[in-house]
């Protein structure tokens, strides 16, 4: 129930390619809630959480972008020293690896919102829940 849809877009590593993609989303009235970029020498992958994933996918695709959606977890991490470490240790103990993570543009209260892409989403969800880590649902994300 805590699976949140993330959009991944292939971008060439050249001037203006990110702006072109975000402008397209903006023009469609879609809000960027979170964003991170993984880059190599000649290409990058922009990972986005937007206010309407399905709409985002179809608009990007219609404009010729290579897009896919991925399930991620959004956890509320206490905004204090070692807040993140605690969560990472929980996952490590259960042998779940974190492929990447990045944070939300917004936060809620005293918590930072961290997006996790892990090796086993289903199990990570259960474990974090059992350890009392608060996570956001897609519906909650959509109304941020």
């Amino acid at each position: 129930m805590y699976r949140v849809k993330q959009l991944s877009v292939f971008l060439e590593n050249r001037k203006g390619s990110l702006a072109a993609a975000t402008q397209l989303l903006g023009a469609s009235g879609l809000n960027l809630l979170a964003l991170s970029i993984a880059e190599t020498d000649n290409f990058g992958i922009a990972r986005l959480i937007v206010s309407d994933t399905q709409d985002g996918v179809s608009r990007l695709r219609a404009s010729g972008y290579t897009v896919r959606t991925t399930d991620v977890l959004v956890a509320c991490v206490p905004d204090r020293p070692n807040g993140l470490t605690e969560i990472l240790r929980i996952l490590e103990k259960e042998d779940i690896s974190v492929e990447y993570l990045y944070s939300f543009v917004r936060n809620s209260g005293f918590n930072a919102l961290i997006i996790f892409r892990v090796s086993d989403t289903e199990r990570a969800m259960q474990i974090l829940k059992n350890n009392g880590i608060e996570m956001l649902t897609q519906a909650q994300v959509d109304t941020l």
């Binding site: 292939f10 992958i45 695709r61 290579t66 896919r68 492929e99």
Partner: peptide, 15 residues
């Protein structure tokens, strides 16, 4: 060209 079929959200996958 990168197509939807080969795109995997991970840099490692594309590499």
């Amino acid at each position: 060209e990168v197509t939807d079929d080969m795109f995997s959200d991970s840099i490692g996958g594309l590499d």
